[in-house]
Design a protein around this nucleic acid. Structure first.
Lengths: 226, 226
DNA sequence: CTGATATTCAAGTATGTGTTTGAATATGTG
DNA sequence: CACATATTCAAACACATACTTGAATATCAG
């Protein structure tokens, strides 16, 4: 009898944990998590950025919500979704790391898509932190401004990549420029570096993204309090 | 066209990561991971410990294997399964942490089962490390010996809980005894502490288990090299 | 109140997953 | 070689999940 209840306990307990696994078992939902790791967003925005129908995005968000990975805040007719806890970001980064380490397919897919990245040097967290301290580089956040406002690397300037060409004069020609965006699978920083180099700047891409930086407990800043 | 391939890239990439999520989406598979976090095991052992049929356990192990979360080593007619990387352990601990933080149901299930735990003090990693350094406690690994051999807290002694009553004379009466087992959902250390206290020892349970200790990079030892 | 908008709900269909059962492999033993 | 054992495979079933469509809510502006 004790064994029976022990089995029931374990089954029930692990089935609960599996709710989180189930929430992570869809590529679409992982994409939503990756976006929400940048800043909170409405259903409409999330649907548009992931190419899903709104009803489908809403449904996926509710799966995430029932696993308590995301929270909603309602304002007027909008529902603003966000990750419910910083542990959720760590969980996603941890999953991403396992994927990068173990699944050869991921490396192949990424290399296929970013054909030019191989010969584009990138900076690590440690490097960047060191350079930031000495003030020897300019760090550029090239994500949309909303995401910058929601949180960015301390000391970084916001120039969204689509405004970059028009705002080149704000950038000092003599310093090294380090551009960052959402993370390793985001093209924004690559585009920014390409533009900057074409104009004669000495530009580098930061390997990670803002969420990676934040999850390591490195210094961040935000325009609007949470 | 660029947008189309960008969408295809993201869909494909996140679908790959979702393979790992899918592997984590079953309570049964999480239970297998929890067991494999202790030491490598055969299909038979895993099936017996989780109460699954052998065919079913084998099938779940193959799901884990195709997501590269576990590896097999074949020896004779036995297949020894183990976690394929230390990152997998971290991923599981990260998922566990999110569950414990976010899912109220988990707390309820655990409290229901461990009714007596409330009034049983437990030691944290930090405490235990401090005590280990000063030698003021005896640390007891009460898991089956095989798991102890595969790796244990440095300085711990192995006395499997089912041998404990017979081996009480090996334990100094005057020191505090800290017992640990597989983790917070394992009963072995609770049982050991109950036995020890009944015999007049001053005994405590360590809150985590060996995997938690190891994942924090704290000092470990192993009898048999990997 | 009416109309517009953002989101959610509900139903339906196609597809995928978990488990059991019994057979098939593959390795080691006498 | 024949046999025992550990594991895997294949088929069949019940059940769950993803996506689409169209309707239902809910909030705000006029």
């Amino acid at each position: 009898m004790k064994n029976l209840t022990k089995r029931a306990f374990k089954t029930e307990l692990f089935e609960e944990f599996a709710r989180i696994g189930k929430a992570l078992s869809s590529g679409r939902r992982l994409e939503l998590i990756e976006l929400l790791a940048q800043s909170e967003r409405t259903v409409e925005e999330l649907a548009a950025e992931t190419g899903m129908s709104i009803a489908n995005a809403s449904q996926h968000l509710q799966v995430l919500r029932s696993a308590r990975l995301v929270d909603v805040r309602r304002q007027g007719t909008y529902a603003w979704y966000r990750l419910s806890d910083e542990h959720v970001l760590r969980l996603w980064l941890s999953l991403r790391e396992v994927g990068e380490m173990q699944l050869a397919e991921i490396e192949r897919i990424v290399e296929d898509f970013f054909k030019d990245r191989k010969d584009m040097e990138a900076t690590t967290c440690e490097d960047l932190l060191k350079h930031l301290k000495t003030g020897s580089v300019v760090v550029l956040d090239v994500r949309p401004e909303q995401e910058y406002s929601a949180g960015h690397i301390r000391g970084a300037r916001s120039i969204p990549v689509n405004e970059l060409e028009a705002r080149l004069k704000e950038i000092p020609k003599k310093k090294t420029i380090v551009a960052y965006c959402r993370g390793p699978y985001c093209v924004l920083a690559d585009e920014a570096v390409a533009i900057l180099r074409a104009k004669g700047f000495n530009a580098l891409r930061f390997k990670g993204g803002f969420p990676d930086w934040k999850a390591r407990g490195l210094p961040v800043e935000r325009a609007i309090p949470p």
